[in-house]
Computed example of a mutant assay.
Amino acid sequence: MKKYALFLCLFLYQMVGAQVPGSVVAYSPASSGLYIGSPSVCILPNGDYLASHDLFGPKSNEFEKPISKIYRSQDKGKTWTHIADINGQFWSKLFVHEKGLYFMGTSKHHGNTIIRKSTDNGNTWSEPTDAENGLLLAGEYHCAPMPLIEHDGKLWRAMEDAMGPIKKWGKRYGAFMMSIPLGADPMKATNWTSSNVLRHDSTLLGGNFGGWIEGNAVVDPNGQLWDVLRVDDKSTLEEKAAFVKISADGKTATFDRDADFVKFPGGSKKFSIRYDSKSKLYWTITNYIPDEIKAANKGRNPASIRNTQALFSSKDLRNWDLRKILLQHPDIIKHGFQYVDWLFEGKNNIIFLSRTAYEDGQGGAHNNHDANYMTFHRIKKFRKSKP
């Protein structure tokens, strides 16, 4: 019976999935109680693509021992094969560093900060048993599949401490940065440095500050490193990001409450920023809210509007230009393109994964947040994109 149900699900997704934008990497119907989260993508030295996601929702084990799934594509993202399940990995980013393949995130929803290594292109992974083997920080932590960058002789990765005194979403999260010298073993906890944690401050934004999470490690045009975070502010549809300054030694994080909240399209949802040396621009793919959608949804929490993904660029990290609408659906309740993870591909393209909520012939996604698909996409000649 289980085999028949699995066959039926696969058949339906193949029949209906053709209507879903992009190439389907993974599918989980709403009826399963397992929703697709945390898309992550990397390109292996041999040219293969790896993709990952975790599973959250009422039938998942996200608070105890969540599952992350790994997929491989050997045809530039056209088709994907499931190659591994990892028990005890959540909110995690795949990345290649100094010829090693790693998977960094948490052990569960608000779990330890951990990192795993694969020596066979993602088929099998190490276990984070102790501080010598991938257990980096014990406690309660939060993150998303965010970019890791090399700068000033170190590898940098933004994280959030989830051990604030008020155990509520947003209020429990504090921003900090992790770093490790290039050439050091990422699997050893003692090689990593953590900055101080900047806790939630209820007085920010005139009392409307709900929290900051899912930070980006980014270097500005002057060489200053920042942790650029998603900001929760339910009082307005004018979205913003927070710019937390990180010292050169990685030990000190500071925030100017008057200058470091910056208008940012899609800033109330997860976004990733990367710098392109050819165009000398910063690029992001973000859950932008177009003016016509703002006009029709006054008073709505901006974080709940996820039906548009758009490409933006910036010269200075603080002023952003719309380059192209990438994905959009008129319905904001049960359709969403979100938590995009992306990379530059070759000389002219961008590839990205989306956590996609879309119709599937079985009633669609549970809602726009609780996605039933992970989809793969490519932006060709992205530098020539125009609105």
Rank of each mutant, 00 (worst) to 15 (best):
G100A: 06
G100D: 10
L101K: 03
Y102I: 05
Y102H: 11
F103C: 05
G105L: 08
G105H: 09
T106H: 08
T106C: 15
K108P: 04
K108A: 09
H110D: 13
G111F: 04
G111M: 06
N112W: 11
N112D: 15
N112P: 07
T113P: 00
I115G: 06
R116D: 02
R116F: 03
R116V: 01
K117Q: 15
K117M: 10
K117P: 00
S118Q: 03
T119C: 03
T119Y: 04
D120A: 04
D120K: 10
D120Q: 11
D120P: 07
N121T: 04
G122P: 08
E127F: 07
E127K: 14
T129M: 02
T129H: 00
T129E: 06
T129K: 15
T129F: 00
T129Q: 08
D130R: 08
D130T: 00
A131T: 06
E132H: 07
E132W: 00
N133Q: 08
G134N: 05
L135W: 04
L136N: 01
L136F: 01
L137Y: 05
A138E: 15
A138S: 15
A138C: 04
G139F: 07
E140A: 13
E140H: 12
E140L: 09
E140Q: 15
Y141H: 15
C143S: 14
A144C: 07
P145N: 08
M146I: 14
M146Q: 15
L148K: 13
L148E: 12
L148W: 02
L148C: 10
I149Y: 08
E150Y: 12
H151R: 08
H151W: 15
H151G: 02
G153K: 14
W156S: 06
W156A: 07
R157P: 00
R157Q: 06
E160G: 01
E160H: 12
E160S: 14
E160P: 00
D161Y: 12
G164E: 03
P165K: 15
P165S: 13
I166G: 00
I166T: 14
K167D: 14
K168C: 01
W169I: 05
G170N: 08
K171T: 11
Y173C: 09
G174D: 08
A175M: 14
F176T: 03
F176I: 04
F176A: 01
M178Q: 12
M178N: 07
S179A: 11
S179Q: 11
P181F: 01
P181G: 06
D185T: 07
D185S: 13
P186W: 12
M187T: 08
M187H: 10
T190Y: 07
W192R: 09
W192G: 04
T193L: 03
S194E: 06
S195R: 11
N196I: 01
N196V: 01
N196Q: 03
N196P: 03
N196M: 02
V197K: 13
R199L: 08
R199T: 01
H200D: 05
D201H: 09
S202W: 01
T203I: 02
L205T: 00
L205H: 03
G206F: 04
G206W: 05
G207P: 09
F209D: 02
F209N: 09
G210V: 06
G210H: 09
G211H: 10
W212L: 11
W212N: 15
